[in-house]
């Protein structure tokens, strides 16, 4: 006899599979599983290269070279798929962290696979272009791994529980207060304050964004000017100076935040386009080698 109850799922559930009790970064994922796989693969390539006697000499065109080349090319395509995996929110079980971990370590193994594939025959041709592009992609990726390991802490410390929106809002709030507080100041003193209010805190382009050094220093200038000023309404001026100091700190925090975020993202603008250039060069390389047959 069936029951009216829809039976609850019997035991522990699917979510247990992604359940981790502690934070474990992508580099350490599953006790360095992909580092081991990748290391083993490299070792295998190096050993077999030494042991297998390919005549007349090791070359991309030998059966051994073709094997490594095929592995390398497929690996490159699979590594590229991370960009798709990351954005494709299917409902089945997968862990992007595991993918990242594999991406990093298998990507590094390409250094060995592809270089040994060449048989160390490099020259000024489309084949070596593909190899060089690949090395550049890997190099930019290494930069990415480095900043992912080093910068998150600094990002967290700098933002001190504030969100980016709150940082922007804080600067706007200081501007509003400055506007009110600067009313009693004489025109000569109000002008630098006004300049600070009117400054675009983000002017300076990509260079400023990455270095954190911005050309527009109206707030600092205003603070300097007002600190030195004498006479007039000293109390009102002190209030404005205090506000300018606070605004400077808020600006510095926001700029540092943007700088760190930029450093964490900038490499992708190299890594991804170079990957597509690599795939193009790789295609040219593969098509052209068929003419050697």
């Amino acid at each position: 006899m069936a029951t009216l109850f829809r039976r609850r799922r019997a035991t522990a559930t699917q979510t247990e599979r992604v359940r981790e009790r502690r934070h474990e970064g992508f580099l350490r994922h599953a006790n360095f599983r992909w580092a081991k796989v990748s290391g083993g693969l490299c070792l295998l390539v190096i050993l077999s290269y030494a042991l297998i006697d390919v005549s007349p000499r090791p070359n991309g065109g030998s059966w051994y070279g073709y094997t490594l080349g095929t592995i390398g090319a497929l690996l490159i395509l699979w590594l590229t798929a991370l960009g798709y995996r990351k954005r494709r929110m299917t409902s089945d079980f997968w862990s992007l962290k595991a993918w990242t971990s594999a991406h990093v370590y298998l990507g590094l193994s390409l250094i060995v696979i592809a270089t040994w594939h060449t048989g160390f025959q490099l020259g000024w041709n489309v084949h070596t272009l593909a190899w060089a592009l690949m090395m550049l992609v890997i190099l930019s990726g290494l930069y990415g791994v480095a900043v992912y390991a080093l910068l998150p802490q600094a990002l967290s410390n700098n933002r001190d529980q504030m969100t980016q929106m709150q940082m922007l809002e804080a600067i706007r709030a200081f501007d509003r207060q400055l506007h009110a507080a600067a009313q009693p100041l004489p025109p000569g003193e109000a002008a630098p304050v006004l300049a600070s209010l009117e400054q675009d805190p983000f002017a300076g382009g990509i260079r400023a964004r990455l270095t954190g050094r911005y050309p527009n220093r109206a707030t600092a200038a205003a603070r300097a000017a007002l600190t030195e000023a004498v006479g007039g309404d000293a109390e009102a001026r002190a209030k404005v100076v205090a506000l300018l100091t606070q605004k400077e700190a808020a600006l510095a925090r926001l700029r540092e935040h943007l700088r760190l975020r930029a450093l964490l993202e900038i490499w992708l603008y190299v890594h991804v386009p170079l990957t597509f250039a690599l795939i193009a060069a790789l295609s040219a390389h593969i098509i052209s080698v068929f003419f050697y047959w």
């Binding site: 699917q14 992604v18 934070h23 970064g25 299917t90 079980f93 992007l96 962290k97 990242t100 992912y148």
Partner: peptide, 15 residues
């Protein structure tokens, strides 16, 4: 969703 919480699945660094 068979895979469990998407926020955790989609984190690239394990944070």
């Amino acid at each position: 969703l068979a895979g469990g919480p998407a926020c955790v699945r989609a984190c690239p660094t394990g944070a």
